[in-house]
Simulated scan of single mutants.
Amino acid sequence: MAETKPVDRPLSPHLQIYKPMLTMMMSIVHRATGMALYAGMILLVWWLCAAAASDDAFATAQWIFSSWLGLLVLLGFTWALIHHALGGLRYLYWDTGRGFELSRVELMAKANLAGSIILTILVWIIAYMVHA
C-alpha cells in the first residue's frame, strides 16, 4: 500500500484568532435571542392554554409569571423580542445594499443595543402604569 503524503492546506481562522468586535457579538446575540424567543413562545402558549383550560390553571400561570423569577423571565423575553426585531430591521436595511460603511455598521450595532434596552424599559414602564 502506498503511503500518502499529507497535503499542506491553509488553516481556517478560529475564534481565538479574531478580536471580539461589537458587530460580531451582536450577530451572536441576534441568533441567541432568536432561540430564546422559541422558549418564550412555549411559555406564551402555556399561558394561553391555561387561560382557556380553567380558572385554577390560569391562576397558577399568573402566580408563576407574577413571581420575581417569572417577572425576570418576562423582562428577558421582552428584551429579546425587541432586540431581535431591531436586529431584523438592521439586516433588512443591509439587504437593500446600503449601510455597509464601517462607521455606519458600528453605529447601527450600538443603536440596536441601546434601542433595545431603552424600548424594553419604556414598555415595562407603560405596562406598570397601565397595570397600577
Rank of each mutant, 00 (worst) to 15 (best):
R31N: 13
S116K: 01
R90M: 05
I82C: 01
P13Y: 01
S116I: 00
W63H: 14
R90G: 03
R31P: 01
Y18C: 05
Y91K: 10
G70P: 06
A85I: 06
T33A: 12
L71H: 13
W63V: 06
W46P: 04
T23E: 02
R9S: 15
Y128M: 12
A2D: 14
D55H: 07
L113D: 05
F65D: 12
P13D: 08
M129E: 14
G70A: 02
L11G: 06
T4V: 06
L122T: 13
Y18E: 08
M41H: 05
A59G: 11
M26K: 13
M108V: 13
Q16G: 11
Y91E: 14
L75Q: 10
Q16T: 11
I42N: 02
A53L: 02
W47Q: 14
T78E: 04
F100T: 06
D8G: 13
V130D: 03
N112T: 13
L22E: 03
L86C: 01
W94P: 00
V123D: 03
T33N: 07
L43D: 00
G34K: 11
D8A: 14
L43Y: 00
A57E: 07
D95S: 09
Y38H: 12
A53S: 08
H30L: 03
G34D: 11
D56F: 04
S54K: 05
D95Q: 12
L119G: 05
M26A: 13
G70W: 00
V45P: 07
H84S: 10
L69W: 15
V73W: 08
L122Y: 12
H30P: 03
H83K: 04
H84R: 03
L75G: 05
L81E: 05
A32E: 10
A80R: 00
P10D: 15
K110N: 01
F100Q: 05
I126T: 15
